[in-house]
């Protein structure tokens, strides 16, 4: 078992009313799964992803990650946990504009305090693996959207996380670029990486092994 959500509730108070963003979510994720979260706008897909990624808090329920009770952990501990095991991929890539491709890849390793020689070899491996060695000294603005997302995925993978969380990873890409990224995900999954993606696209969802449908914060 990689992670387990039990009776997760999340809400905001607005105008004296409680609006539920997540309502009684139960979810078990095994290692090696490829899950797609689907649902219309405002159904809570991204919120759920953020909760799983520990970027966002929830108001009620229990969440354990690798048997660690996330809801009771201190901020710092939690940060260490996701730093080590989780990689993020965003719809708008979110590369650091001031850094080159190589430096963007290096960033998570720096935060994990990985030694210099090992860092270099990991970066070199990754550049190689994603076939972007020729782009390593370019800045994000010099890349196409597909290439940027490729770097985004590479960056998420470089510290060999157990789980990749992807929020509409192909949302800003054309169909050909999208297919490439999804193919990459499929391949990574086959190598043992657990993937949870949020998507609008039925076609992208078919890459996954399981689909979770959300509506108004509730699993259906």
């Amino acid at each position: 078992m990689l992670l387990q959500l039990n009776n997760i509730f999340k809400w905001v108070n607005s105008g004296g009313q409680r609006i539920f963003l997540l309502k009684d979510i139960n979810l078990n994720v095994e290692e090696g799964e490829f899950i797609s979260i689907m649902g219309p706008s405002g159904s809570g897909k991204s919120t759920l992803l953020n909760v799983i990624g520990m970027l966002d808090n929830f108001d009620e329920g229990e969440y354990s990650f690798l048997d660690e009770p996330v809801h009771t952990l201190k901020e710092k501990h939690r940060a260490n946990l996701y730093k080590q095991y989780i990689g993020f991929v965003f719809q708008s890539y979110h590369l650091l504009d001031d850094l080159t491709v190589k430096e963007n890849l290096e960033m998570p390793l720096l935060y994990k305090k990985v030694g210099s020689s090992e860092r270099k070899s990991l970066v070199a491996d990754t550049l190689d693996r994603f076939n972007i060695v020729g782009k390593k000294d370019l800045f994000p603005s010099q890349l196409s959207g597909g290439q940027q997302q490729l770097v985004g995925v590479a960056r998420a993978l470089i510290s060999s996380p157990k789980l990749i969380l992807a929020d509409e990873p192909t949302g800003n890409l054309n169909s050909k670029q999208g297919e490439e990224i999804m193919g990459l995900f499929k391949q990574l999954n086959s190598e043992g990486v657990t993937i949870i993606q949020v998507t609008h696209s039925e076609k992208n969802a078919t890459y996954g092994s399981r689909i979770i449908d959300l509506l108004d914060g509730r699993k259906i």
């Binding site: 990624g53 970027l55 710092k76 940060a79 996701y82 730093k83 080590q84 993020f88 979110h94 590369l95 650091l96 504009d97 001031d98 960033m107 998570p108 935060y111 994990k112 960056r155 510290s159």
Partner: peptide, 16 residues
């Protein structure tokens, strides 16, 4: 702000 957000998701903590 965006940079801070990205760095945090990449594992940076506040002191860093």
């Amino acid at each position: 702000a965006k940079e801070v957000g990205i760095r945090k998701t990449l594992g940076s903590d506040k002191p860093a």
